[in-house]
Simulated assay, not measured.
Amino acid sequence: MNVEFSDRTSKLKASEIRELLKLTQKPEVISFAGGLPAPELFPIKRIEEVTKQVLEEKGEIALQYSTTEGYAPLREIIVNERMAKNGVNTTIENILITNGSQQALEFSAKLFVNKDDVIICESPSYLGALNAFKAYEPKFVEIPMDDDGMQMDKLEEAIKNNPNTKMIYTIPDFQNPSGKTMSIERRKKLAEIGAKYKIPIIEDSPYGELIFEGKPYPCVKSFDKEGYVITLGTFSKTFCPGFRIGWVCASKEILQKYILVKQGADLQANTFTQMIAAEFMQKYSLDEHIKKIIDVYKKRRDLMLESMEKYFPKEITFTYPKGGLFTWVNLKEGIDAVDVNVDALKQNVAFVPGGSFFPNGGNKNHFRLNYSTMDEEHIVEGIKRLASVIKKYY
């Protein structure tokens, strides 16, 4: 076909993670590639019960169009339980329900970024966000991280050197892909920097409640006095990813723009799944469900890291995440993790090469491992297989 697409379309590329997931659908493949929750932890029976209740008692509402902002009882739950738990005092007028937080990421770039504007992000950063942003043809400036997250002195220097910076993107809790967590002091500083330079901060927070050690840190937004911090939340990692329920928490002025963009995109999120989620959380404790998830993921993290210590070459380093879904592996310079992954797939084990997490390229000697999806037996066997492949490169 001779079809002329927009210039913007040429910037779109298939998600490397999604393409990898197609290859890992074979039952014999041990996949550490996706950021998938453990399916055996989905509360299927309770959802079945609640779904029936919603249809019987509120079916005509559940199957009808609804408001763009989202189902009010669910927004109340987000305000009073999820956001309050993270130190944010807000109201439902500050909450918009989206089709997963991925939609909110795409909306953020649409709202704030013109061609050649600068988006500042952590280095490395979440591949799904980078792909969503790239359609708007920005330039990316990467800020290095240490064990306390994004380095604030380097961030402020980058803003001064790039006056057309329109957005700062961060994943402060158990960052995807590195597993690192931003310190409380830097969260405070980040909120101050956003206000000082009048730049929106997109705080992507899908993993904050999946904490294995210590207490949860307050959101960056909890330190926001001027309204420049926009927090994106989701139930995908703590409840059901298939429901595609995320949210934006922002000042009323900013949120109104997100609402307008959503009206143009899809009018509203799914009424039925919003009502099921709200009914579930009114009837059962989501916190209790999250505790079950944490217990399982912590054991799997411990087992993966222990297995890596035991079987990987000693020169290899990796992060020790205190929550979330991922650890980040550093190979010696000169090794391309894509090549390692090709060889690993021949042994029926998969991961995500790290190069795609760096928007400006390079840094090919890294990869991301997920420990939430595979059971304990497969984690050990998968790491053994992966270690045998990596040793060929050392």
Rank of each mutant, 00 (worst) to 15 (best):
P43I: 10
P43W: 08
P43Y: 10
I44H: 11
K45A: 09
K45F: 07
K45Y: 07
R46Q: 15
R46G: 08
I47F: 09
I47Q: 00
I47A: 04
E48C: 05
E49F: 11
E49W: 08
V50R: 02
V50W: 03
V50L: 06
T51A: 15
T51R: 14
T51G: 15
K52P: 01
K52H: 12
K52E: 14
K52C: 08
K52W: 10
K52F: 11
Q53M: 13
Q53C: 12
Q53S: 15
Q53T: 14
V54F: 01
V54I: 09
V54C: 04
V54H: 04
L55T: 03
L55M: 06
L55S: 04
L55N: 01
L55C: 01
L55G: 01
L55P: 00
E56H: 05
E56R: 09
E56G: 08
E57A: 01
E57C: 03
E57Y: 02
K58C: 03
K58A: 07
K58L: 10
K58M: 07
G59A: 13
G59V: 12
G59K: 14
G59F: 13
G59L: 12
G59D: 13
E60D: 14
E60I: 10
E60F: 11
I61G: 09
I61K: 15
I61P: 05
I61D: 14
A62K: 02
A62L: 09
A62R: 02
A62T: 06
L63C: 07
L63G: 04
Q64M: 06
Q64T: 04
Q64R: 12
Q64W: 06
Y65A: 08
Y65T: 05
Y65S: 10
Y65K: 12
S66P: 00
S66A: 09
S66L: 04
S66F: 12
T67G: 00
T67W: 03
T67P: 00
T68L: 07
T68Y: 07
T68M: 07
T68N: 07
E69M: 12
E69Q: 13
E69T: 10
E69I: 11
E69W: 07
E69K: 14
G70F: 05
Y71N: 00
Y71K: 01
Y71S: 00
Y71M: 03
A72K: 13
A72R: 11
A72M: 08
A72C: 03
P73C: 00
P73M: 02
L74D: 02
L74M: 01
R75I: 03
E76T: 13
E76H: 10
E76K: 15
E76R: 13
E76V: 08
I77S: 01
I77T: 08
I77C: 04
I77M: 08
I78H: 02
I78Y: 05
I78N: 02
I78D: 02
I78E: 05
V79R: 07
V79K: 09
V79S: 05
